[in-house]
Design a protein around this nucleic acid. Structure first.
Length: 301
RNA sequence: GGUGGGGUAGCGAAGUGGCUAAACGCGGUGGACUGUAAAUCCACUCCCUCAGGGUUCGGCAGUUCGAAUCUGUCCCCCACCA
């Protein structure tokens, strides 16, 4: 199996800085694995690396239209293509990002051959309540119904959509069997430090002109209700309707903290990661530790 | 100094004699996750444990079979008057 290196970790842990150093050390290129950073125009709020700071080639970054539809299937195809392209050039691809599902879909045995999502599908079920919808799913795919909570309407609907197509979402593989020889490094720190970094990063984003970025998007007519990345909807609402900016920022901080926690749950339970504790006082130490892991990984067959 | 309002779990806030370890919200923690993933959803959250038990509603002392809820007193906060 060909080798792939992944650098992941919760939001704001400090992946970007380290990724540049690692990429240079390995003389390789970076494949973005952060779902929020695919789209153009969403820069400051997604902590996307600035072009002038990206002194290493980045792939699958900043390439999608702001409102374009995109799915893990698209990512699976694009990322695998990019990986083999880099392999073809004799490089060891470095995936960097915090979207665990996307990483698993790209690297693991995720079977995605059921029909894709039809955006019109759910419209025919608007009249059904969660419980009724869940009962309908139970009739077509009892296993899926057992696993998905009735309140999780979004997932009930998709499972139903798959079931009605003749496939069964409950038959799908876990994706934990990897298609590559992968070293997955997950950067972590203690909760308190992470939350502190998240909290202050929101302030920094505002100082860097996040509000202007959102104003620009609104001026261009971008429908920010469709943008799911934390903060954009909240700031758009603040710009259009006013209110207490500090309260809005607190809300954004909270949502980001909650998101980081969800990411950690995924990394712990859905991925086979090597956890590396960040040392913010001595970043060289973290870097050194990672280089050792890389050396071991590259040495073995 | 006087008058009025108030002190409830990490925070906000209901509750004004038994159905109350105490609604609800927030925050927090754990978890789920296959085509919206920075999304969506679930559980737990006074203490010890599964069931069960132990301590609570500013403090103390009472009334009562029974009190967060009633009485007295003390402490603290807020508003207004001096």
């Amino acid at each position: 199996m060909k080798k792939v290196i992944v650098l992941t970790g919760p939001t704001a842990v400090g992946k970007t800085d380290l990724s540049l150093k690692i990429a240079k050390h390995l003389r390789t290129e970076i494949i973005n694995a952060d779902a929020s950073q695919f789209r153009k125009g969403l820069d400051i709020g997604t902590a996307k690396i600035k072009p002038e700071e990206a002194d290493v080639p980045h792939h699958l970054l900043d390439f999608l239209d702001t409102e374009a539809e995109f799915s893990i299937r698209d990512y699976q195809i694009l990322a695998r293509k990019k990986i083999s392209e880099l392999h073809g050039r004799g490089l060891i691809p470095l995936l960097v990002g915090g979207s665990g599902l996307y990483i698993n879909a790209a690297l693991g045995d995720y079977r995605l051959d059921a029909p894709g999502r039809n955006l019109e599908f759910e419209k025919q079920y608007l009249a059904l309540r969660n419980q009724e919808l869940h009962a309908l799913l139970a009739a077509h795919d009892p296993d899926a119904a057992r696993k998905i909570h009735p309140n999780n309407r979004r997932r009930v609907l998709r499972a139903l959509e798959v079931a009605l197509s003749g496939e069964k979402i409950s038959d799908n593989l876990t994706g934990s069997r990897l298609l590559y020889d992968a070293l997955i490094i997950c950067l972590v720190t203690d909760r308190k430090t992470l939350y502190g970094r998240i909290n202050s990063r929101v302030s920094i984003m505002i100082d860097n002109g996040w509000l202007d970025e959102v104003r620009g998007l609104l001026a261009k007519g971008v429908d920010l209700k469709k943008v799911k990345d934390i903060g954009y909807r909240e700031l758009a609402e603040y710009i259009e309707e006013g209110g207490d900016l500090d309260a809005v920022l607190e809300d954004i901080r909270k949502k980001t903290r909650n998101y980081a926690k969800r990411q950690l749950t995924w990394f712990k339970n859905k991925m086979d990661c090597v956890f590396v504790e960040m040392d913010y006082r001595n970043p060289e130490m973290t870097e050194k530790k990672i280089k050792e892991l890389l050396a071991d990984f590259l040495r073995r067959d």
